[in-house]
Amino acid sequence: MNPINEVKLEFVSKSSNEAFARVVAAAFVSQIDPNIEELADVKTAVSEAVTNAIIHGYENKTGLVKMICKLYEDAVEISVIDEGKGIEDIEKARQPMFTSRPDMERSGMGFTVMENFMDRVEVVSEVGGVLP
C-alpha cells in the first residue's frame, strides 16, 4: 500500500534536535485531526526513539538521524533511523528497565513508553554502524 503523504527529515545527532523532531512529527500527524492526548503520545514516542539514536546509536558523537513520516488511509507510520552501533539483543533491549547506560542515569523505559503510547512498535537493527 502506498502512503497518501510522506515527509522525510534528516538532522545531526544534537540533543537540541530532539524537540525539533517531535514537533515535526506532531505537525505531520496533525493533518488527521488527532486529539491532544494522541498528539502527546506521538511526540513522546518520537522523542524516545530520537534520544536513543543520539545517545545509544551514536553514543553522543556526530551522526545523522533520519525520520520518515508516512500517512496511510487509516494509519500513521513514523520511522526513526540511525546508522550507529546497533542493538545486539533486541528482545533484551525492549524489556522494561533494561538499560546499557545506568551510568548516564537512563532508566530503561524508552521502549516501554513507545510501546504504551503507540499501537505498534517495530525494532530492526544490525550491529556495527558507520562510526568506529
Binding site: 502527546a40 511526540k43 524516545e48 534520544t51 542515569e105 532508566s107 523505559m109 524508552g110
Partner: peptide, 13 residues
C-alpha cells in the same frame, strides 16, 4: 509541558 523517559532518570537519580 512535555516529559519523556529522560525525566524518570533525573528523578530517580
Amino acid at each position: 509541558t512535555f516529559m519523556d523517559s529522560s525525566g524518570i532518570g533525573v528523578i530517580m537519580g
